[in-house]
Write a protein that binds this DNA or RNA. Structure first.
Length: 587
DNA sequence: TCTTTTACTTAGTAGTTTTTTT
DNA sequence: AAAAAAACTACTAAGTAAAAGA
């Protein structure tokens, strides 16, 4: 959508919102959100559909009970989904196997169903090898062939990957339908292994403006529906068969629509900054409320604020992995220690959060919180809700009363951004080199990632690269020891000779030792950093929680080129912030 | 009021590409 | 030139929260 400010000024080309930020036009943000209109014109080509199934060549067989069985096309396709995954841990899990086998049988013909009765008599190894070979063949392609593939992908991107929104060409985030396959949930998912159906045009709803060129469905097909709803931002949608949820085709984060939304998000978090002290004293007071619900709300909010926990919506049991957030914590997820690690009133939290990532923390809390937790746990069993009187809806309703637009997740954004700003202030020294400043930035980023519990699997190559680094350190230590010995000799030499030559030799040795010690120091901090970061994912907070204006301002203030902090994609995503933030920006 | 649906943000993984080291 | 490491991208699952429906 064209910026209303620019429209009013008759500026049709480049949005000048950024440079005109000092001009006050109260109300235009509100005006936008009130009627909920997201665009006036929207045109696109519809999603690009996953290629249809390519049957296995004649030489590749599936065996049942040792005998080759020629499968129908539909059954064969599903068999290849499993065959491809054979070396993955997933296929060893019983739930995965059962879900797969039951869904696979539904795709079989009656005769196939009569033959194929047990998964353990199925032999997919030829199918597996076929795909392994295929991957290897693709990897072995010549430079020219690879280039050609790349160009084809680019062509596709150009044709389907962009839309026109209010006259601007905008990049689409996901323009391809998800291909069929076996569902891979995260953690202990009850539906892992189920067949994820192929999406057909008949499943897809198109959203575009009435007067635009309506996208053509693939030959011989029709759209489920074409609608024109300008109060939503999606271009196409379909219902997925595993969870029965809706999937959307949406714009890329670089688009203006997404950028403005992102900006808005940080503005809400900045408003929280203005009232957070008051909110904190409020929930402290509520720890002593006579109303149990109020107390639970106050303690939950304390967790959300202090520990950056997620809200914790309720979820349907048995439909997803058993994970929790703040409001859905159960008694089994916390332990109370009157005293631990030399602190009083220690709470240990241990639960699986989003994506089944473990949250483990042992933290001293204020006495009333501790007492309340004891109270909330009284006469409950492990599986009971800790905050039994509280839901995310009631919590958010309360927050809404405290500040317009305030919800539980705003606290995560606020605390993340504030932490970055504080850490940058504490760690950055103006006289440092650019490299050292970037190291400080990453440390600040890491503090946030740890706060938000953003984890990653230890990289596969970690052990080896750590070993190499240790080897380097050992070698450097040896060099230092040698340099020390030489320095000692040089000192003795100079002492007895006392001439210029021996002095300059001595000074040379001194400088060498100094240099080597510095190198050793750098290597060992590198090793510490590496060890401490191996399970920490920085990207999530950088992309979703840290107001980019903080980083932009920091770059400007300390002469760090912004490209060293944000790559090209990220700079496109944060274009609004790059435009807007001066070196004096404060979150 | 309670439940379900909808829309959108946040999340980690796997595969690919680029850069650095050897 | 090859190998290793780091950076980046695509993908899609899993959250949040508000609106709609019963």
């Amino acid at each position: 959508m064209q910026c209303l400010l620019c429209a009013a000024l008759g500026l049709s080309q480049r949005c000048l919102r950024g440079s005109l930020r000092l001009i006050v036009w109260p109300g235009w943000e509100e005006e936008k959100s009130q009627d909920g209109v997201k665009w006036k014109q929207l045109e696109h080509k519809g999603p690009y559909f996953a290629p249809s199934y390519e049957p296995l060549p004649d030489g590749v067989h599936f065996y049942y009970d040792g005998k080759p069985v020629k499968l129908s096309l539909a059954a064969e396709e599903v068999a290849t989904f499993y065959g491809k995954m054979l070396d993955h841990e997933y296929t060893t899990k019983e739930v995965f196997q059962n879900n797969f086998f039951s869904d696979w049988r539904k795709e079989m013909t009656a005769e196939e169903r009569k033959i194929i009765k047990h998964l353990d008599k199925c032999d997919f190894t030829e199918i597996h090898r076929y795909f392994v070979d295929k991957t290897a063949a693709r990897k072995a392609l010549s430079r020219e062939e690879k280039q050609k593939l790349k160009e084809e992908a680019e062509k596709l991107q150009q044709e389907f990957g962009y839309c026109t929104l209010d006259g601007h060409r905008e990049k689409i985030g996901n323009f391809k339908t998800e291909p069929p396959g076996l569902f891979r949930g995260r953690g202990d998912h009850p539906k892992m292994g189920m067949l994820k159906r192929r999406i057909l045009p008949e499943d897809v709803t198109i959203n575009c403006s009435r007067d635009s060129k309506i996208p053509k469905p693939p030959a011989g097909h029709q759209w489920k529906e074409v609608r024109s709803d300008n109060t939503v931002t999606w271009l196409a949608s379909w219902t997925e068969n595993i969870q029965n949820s809706i999937k959307y085709v949406m714009l890329n984060p670089s688009s203006k629509l997404k950028g403005e939304k992102d900006w808005q998000k940080y503005e809400v978090a900045r408003r929280l900054k203005g009232v957070v002290d008051e909110i904190r004293s409020q929930y402290r007071a509520d720890w002593k409320s006579r109303e149990m619900k109020k107390r639970q709300c106050a303690v939950a909010l304390y967790f959300i604020d202090k520990l950056a926990l997620r809200a914790g919506n309720e979820k349907e049991e048995g439909e997803t992995a058993d994970t929790v957030g703040c409001c859905s914590l159960r008694v089994e997820h916390i332990q109370l220690y009157p005293e631990a690690d030399g602190c009083q009133h220690v709470v240990e939290l241990d639960f699986l959060g989003k994506d089944s990532i473990r949250y483990y923390n042992r933290v001293p809390v204020e006495k009333p919180v501790y007492k309340n937790l004891q109270l909330f746990m009284e006469n409950k069993s492990r599986g009971d809700d800790l905050f039994d009187r509280l839901t995310t809806t009631s919590l958010n309703k309360h927050l809404q009363d405290l500040m317009d637009g305030l919800t539980a997740k705003v606290f995560r954004t606020y605390n993340a951004s504030v932490t970055l700003q504080e850490q940058l202030r504490a760690l950055t020294r103006a006289e440092d080199s650019v490299a050292a400043k970037i190291l400080s930035y990453n440390r600040a980023n890491r503090a946030v990632a740890i706060l938000c519990n953003h984890q990653r699997a230890t990289p596969k190559t970690f052990e080896k690269s750590m070993q190499n680094l240790q080897l380097k350190i050992e070698a450097k230590k040896k060099q230092v020891a040698e340099a020390k010995a030489e320095l000692k000799q040089a000192r003795a030499g100079h002492k007895c000779r006392g001439d210029d030559r021996s002095r300059s030799f001595l000074e040379k040795r001194e400088r060498l030792l100094e240099k080597l010690e510095e190198q050793l120091m750098r290597l060992s901090t590198q090793a510490t950093d590496k060890e401490e970061s191996k399970q920490v994912a920085l990207g999530t907070s950088k992309l979703n929680y840290l107001d980019p204006r903080i980083s932009v301002a920091w770059c400007k203030r300390f002469g760090v080129p912004v490209e060293r902090i944000y790559n090209k994609t990220q700079r496109e995503r944060f274009a609004w912030a790059l435009d807007m933030a001066g070196e004096d920006f404060e979150f």
